[in-house]
């Protein structure tokens, strides 16, 4: 019984240590420490439910892979620019709600900046 408890505690400690090493190796802390909430995180928590980031196929809304390689935004038809993405986040369009109450201007710009990298 003691052996089991010690083994289990050892396994959990090794796993926690693995998580810490993972966090250190997978995070670019220098950039993240800049203070701004990153577009990726905002996307994951607000947008990923309706949009794929890794493919162009539609989920609930259109896939956003290669968005900035396209000429126009899929729904509104406006030119693909940071400003127009931010505008769409502010103004409800068809099924897509406004994020004015949830996201600040800089956070919306961060999301648009993230979409530019896809």
């Amino acid at each position: 019984m003691t052996v089991l408890k010690r083994t289990s505690a050892g396994v959990i400690l090794v796993l926690a240590a693995g998580g810490i090493i993972f966090a250190a190796l997978s995070s670019d802390i220098t950039k993240a420490d800049s203070g701004a909430i990153q577009g990726l995180r905002i996307f994951e928590n607000n947008c990923a439910g309706c949009h794929f980031a890794d493919q162009e196929a539609s989920k609930r809304g259109p896939g956003l892979k290669n968005l900035f390689a396209r000429e126009t935004l899929p729904a509104t038809g406006r030119p693909v620019t940071i400003e127009n993405v931010v505008r769409q986040l502010k103004e409800p369009f068809k099924n897509m709600p406004s994020f004015v109450d949830d996201l600040s201007e800089s956070e919306m710009e961060a999301v648009a900046g993230y979409l530019e990298t896809l």
Partner: peptide, 21 residues
């Protein structure tokens, strides 16, 4: 797999730890 296949991304240490867990 993530560490090997993906370069570090812009995230804080705590955010990375949350994903790892």
């Amino acid at each position: 797999l993530v560490v090997v296949l993906h370069p570090p991304i812009e995230q804080s240490f705590l955010y990375g730890l949350g994903k790892g867990f």
